[in-house]
Simulated scan of single mutants.
Amino acid sequence: MAGVLDSVNQRTQLVGQNRLELLLFRLRGRQVYGINVFKVKEVLQCPRMTAIPNSRSVVRGVAHIRGETIPIIDLGMSIGLPGVPEENLPTSFVIITEYNRKTQGFLVAGVDRIINMNWEDILPPPKGAGREVYLTAVTKLDDKLIEIIDVEKILSEVSPMEEDVTEDVLSRNERDRGGLRPVLVVDDSSVARRQIERCVTAVGLEVITKNDGKKALEFLKEITADGSNVTDHLAMMISDVEMPEMDGYTLVTNCKADPSLSGLYIMLHTSLSGVFNRAMVEKVGADDFMAKFSPDELAERVMHIIDNL
């Protein structure tokens, strides 16, 4: 336990400083990719896998790891690249990750190293990249481009989840919320923005979306530039944590330090979970935290917050 707490304390030193750690890896070829270390549970040599009948081709099988049966997804195949050849499996690696309350392994050709970076150096994908691109961000290291993959988009295609609020939840919360102030949703993943927007609009609230923390902060400062308070314009903000240019932790830190923004109710809604993230949420002063993505749970939490503000 002491080791875990020491690790928490060490990681939380990055919070509010707009920094992150990336694990660098390769698929096919020389291109380097990155994944936030906070989403990585462990990295191991490709274990023995058991094929799953009638599964999608990108799911190479399941592996029994530390008492869990974990699906192994070929990350290259999931973004349209050739997968790891069968003969290369013994020298390949699996990155065990936790996203959206689920554990899965990503099969990659090779793992490089961990680097510490500033979110300001992590940029959105080029505008001409298109809507179907599997990237949430890019950055450079030693003049080499590093691509950060939109894992939420991949998982929504490999294992689609229910995105709609159930009638049972809606029927138990039929209060008319028309005319209430809108909810600001901040997320760099187009899939996540769509999921949250559908959920919040289903309970009768208007939604404004922004792609990252920097754009959100600029918007918040713009609507309060006339001296008004942010609560005159918005009911609450739901923000992701991992975002290019400015992460959710830094966004919260900036909001809570600004008198005109500090009264805004902020929920961090993230695919990161566990003791590390909860310690960080407490440190930056967010009002609430929820792990992605349960439409019913999010809808009920939003309605409870709105009805009690």
Rank of each mutant, 00 (worst) to 15 (best):
M1V: 11
G3I: 09
V4W: 09
L5D: 14
S7W: 11
R11M: 12
L14S: 12
Q17G: 09
L24F: 03
L27R: 05
R30W: 04
R30C: 08
Q31P: 08
Q31T: 15
Y33W: 01
V37E: 10
K39C: 04
K41D: 09
V43E: 07
Q45F: 09
T50G: 06
I52S: 04
S55W: 08
R56V: 13
S57A: 15
V59T: 14
R60Q: 10
G61H: 05
H64A: 14
H64C: 12
R66D: 09
G67C: 01
T69F: 08
I70M: 05
I70F: 06
I72G: 02
D74S: 03
L75N: 10
S78C: 03
I79K: 04
L81N: 12
P82Y: 00
G83F: 00
E86Q: 12
N88S: 13
P90L: 06
F93M: 12
E98W: 02
E98K: 14
R101L: 03
F106C: 07
A109E: 14
I114C: 08
I115A: 04
N116G: 11
K127I: 13
G128M: 14
V138G: 10
D142A: 14
D143H: 13
I148T: 06
I149Q: 05
V151G: 06
E152Q: 08
E152W: 01
K153N: 10
L155T: 06
S156L: 00
E157A: 11
P160Q: 03
E162I: 14
T166A: 06
L170S: 08
S171T: 13
N173A: 12
D176T: 03
L180E: 15
V183R: 09
V186N: 03
V186F: 03
D187G: 02
D187A: 07
D188T: 06
R193K: 13
R194P: 07
I196W: 06
R198M: 15
C199V: 14
C199K: 06
A202I: 08
L205N: 05
I208E: 10
D212T: 09
G213R: 09
K215H: 11
K221L: 15
N229D: 15
T231V: 07
I238D: 01
M243N: 05
M246L: 11
M246C: 08
Y249N: 03
L251Y: 01
L261F: 04
G263C: 02
L268H: 01
S271I: 05
F276V: 12
F276N: 08
A286R: 01
D288W: 05
F289Y: 14
A291F: 01
K292W: 04
E300K: 10
L309P: 07
